[in-house]
Amino acid sequence: MNTGRGGDDTGHGAGPGLPRVMRLGFAVLDRQILDVDGVAVGKVDDVELSWEEGRRPVLSALLTDTGALGPRLSGRLGRTWRTLLGRLRPSGDLPVRIPPDQVHTFTPATRLTRPAPPQTRVVEDWLRTHLIERIPGGGHADSDGQ
């Protein structure tokens, strides 16, 4: 059993914080995603694997947002629901995809090498412009108390 430090790795390869071998469920799924500036993007709600016929599947994207979380919550029923939804309106509630080459490290949190994908900020932006920004004092940081 590995008892060394530094995430779920068993020996580092060439990459900065990327393990050679890892368990997706343990080391990737449900982890916090932070963008290059340390801003919270969301959680890794799901992981997508894809393959060419006859080849091994490869990690093709991290999925985040309700489009990925929704189906997971309801299990098998949710998957059927999503297949249906996908057929009805192909551009529907699609999850945000983050390609794995934008990942700097996976554990303990998933850090990206870029700013957050804009689609992850839709609700945040809407609430900001329609509510929070209109309350006096919304633009003041609290860290003067530090």
Binding site: Q32, V39, E124, L127, R128, G137, G138, H140, D142
Partner: peptide, 24 residues
């Protein structure tokens, strides 16, 4: 923290709009 939003009092409320809406 469950949904992975930005949260907290040490960031400006406009940068944690969902969090502050929820508090409200």
């Amino acid at each position: 923290q469950y949904f992975g939003w930005s949260w907290g009092k040490s960031v400006r409320p406009v940068q944690a709009a969902r969090f502050h809406t929820l508090l409200l």
